[in-house]
Design a protein around this nucleic acid. Sequence first.
DNA 1: TTATTTTGTTAGATTAGTCTAACTTTATAT
DNA 2: ATATAAAGTTAGACTAATCTAACAAAATAA
Lengths: 219, 219
Amino acid sequence: MNSFTEENYLKALFNLSNEKGEVSVNELSRQLQLKMPTVNSMMKKLAEKKLVIYESYKPLRLTEKGKKEAGIIIRKHRLTEMYLVEKMGFGWEQVHDIAEQIEHIKAPELFARMDTLLGHPTVDPHGSPIPDKNGKIRWLHYTKLSDCAEGETVKLAAVTHSSDEFLKFLNGRSLNLGVKLRIKKIESFDGTMEVSYGKRNAETLSKIVCEKLLVEKNL
Amino acid sequence: MNSFTEENYLKALFNLSNEKGEVSVNELSRQLQLKMPTVNSMMKKLAEKKLVIYESYKPLRLTEKGKKEAGIIIRKHRLTEMYLVEKMGFGWEQVHDIAEQIEHIKAPELFARMDTLLGHPTVDPHGSPIPDKNGKIRWLHYTKLSDCAEGETVKLAAVTHSSDEFLKFLNGRSLNLGVKLRIKKIESFDGTMEVSYGKRNAETLSKIVCEKLLVEKNL
DNA sequence: TTATTTTGTTAGATTAGTCTAACTTTATAT
DNA sequence: ATATAAAGTTAGACTAATCTAACAAAATAA
């Protein structure tokens, strides 16, 4: 059985891996807010346990076993977030920190129950996919709003790097998942977008915001 | 903020205190399955933090602060048990181990929500009282079934030392909280009781069992 | 009352997870 | 191509929580 600490390393590694499949010690240490030597020695430990592939001066990679374990932790996190929102009435901006703790609970029945009560959800309240019981994630094919063109109509499908403040910002303008957005205008010099959706006819979203919003194009 | 470890000491101390108000290092070390020197040094640490009163060779006592913190942990434990049973469909024999983990979660909103969704329950699924938000417990005035007399009719109110197996044993004979029992006969030589309740007309309960069942007499 | 057992304490070792300081390797920028 | 910067590694220290071994005090029994 892995400790909370080890689980946090696996999860961070999994999340950082997802673009390149490889992660530097430096990156991981920044993510976890730990010093490099700390991370370095934990990587050796996880390599012993066959969870990570570690070679001196090479980037880090998760083994299949490591990916599976990380996936299961992320599954627990996202099921919990969904449960807190759907069954307990929390807002999507409130659930991350709680799920961060509950994800480490050793009680498969608990998460199985959440899954059942929620009707086997496939995404969490922020639109991120929930890995299956084997930790396998089904990748979704979303596009950044910032990569869309003027005149397109798209559906808001997920938000990335969802901090408290950002989610409250979205709440404030009723930007909930599922909302259909029409891109009225893009300012070419700074990437600011003017969009309309629901009852709002002309909301302005900075490029920074548009880069954090993932949308579905084939409507 | 206290560690999980410290919280477990406080909780154990609280639970053991409830008869005498005082606990020996030996008792506590047995309860926690730790060696005496381990407990001893933790007691010094908790004494520094003003959670425990520790004097060499004297029994241990919780301070008011210690009682409050312990009470709050027990509140979280019992609210969780109740939530798991009432809202998630677990059996009363399944919830202890899960609650043992969730009780350490730092998220007052989570427990406040459970409390609300449950309608401010005062007892957990085993009949134990749930401390209030300040950790204060309202003691209940129950009697052991084994202390009742032949001919009495009583209501099953709580079970003590509720292990998995014992709870399953009770499930097996529909001995749920709230059931009204009539004591038909007590074997004087071994304390075995013959009781009737619900559809069951002559169940035999050993003294060991009767000592673990708490009942309400004033019906 | 003295001897024995039980309980409590002290001292020192161990493990997990963190750190800083010093050094090495790799990458980057003249 | 070499100097400098960034990233990675090693060595050694620290804290929390545990342990064992040895010793001290208190309780119990003879």
